[in-house]
Simulated assay, not measured.
Amino acid sequence: MYKTLIAIFSLVLFTACAPEVGSKDWCEQLKEKPKGDWSANEATDYTKHCLFKSDDEE
């Protein structure tokens, strides 16, 4: 039970540190990451939110 609580706490702690997908911080963070390390979802989200960002998303 103790290990499960530690695992859940760790997961919440680390996911809270990641910037929201599509945010300015997320786009900057992905720019610095080597493109060969991007997942297909990251590439799609980057294209959608960072390259072709519409005015209503700002």
Rank of each mutant, 00 (worst) to 15 (best):
S39Y: 04
K24Y: 09
T4C: 13
C27T: 01
E28H: 01
K48A: 10
K35H: 08
K3V: 15
S54V: 13
T4H: 13
K31L: 12
L5I: 09
L11N: 02
E20C: 10
N41C: 00
A16Y: 01
K24R: 14
E42Q: 06
I6R: 08
C27Q: 01
K48E: 09
I8T: 06
A16Q: 05
C17P: 04
K53L: 07
T47W: 12
G22Q: 00
S39A: 07
K35A: 10
L11T: 08
M1E: 15
K33D: 04
K24A: 12
F14Q: 05
A40F: 13
D55R: 10
T44V: 09
S54N: 11
T47G: 10
V12H: 04
F9M: 07
L5T: 07
K48C: 03
W26I: 03
G36A: 02
P34F: 04
K3G: 13
K24E: 15
F52N: 12
Y46I: 00
C27A: 02
H49D: 06
Y46S: 04
T47K: 11
C50F: 03
D55Q: 11
V12P: 03
K3R: 15
D45Y: 05
N41V: 06
F14A: 12
L51R: 06
C17I: 15
S10Y: 07
T44C: 00
L13S: 10
E20Y: 09
N41S: 08
L11K: 03
D25H: 07
K53S: 12
F9A: 13
L11M: 10
K53G: 07
A7R: 04
Y2V: 14
N41W: 09
K3H: 14
F14R: 05
N41T: 09
L30H: 00
V21K: 02
D45F: 05
C17F: 13
W38T: 00
Y46V: 01
F9Y: 06
M1C: 14
S10C: 11
D25E: 13
K35W: 06
P34W: 02
E20W: 10
T47N: 12
H49F: 15
L11F: 07
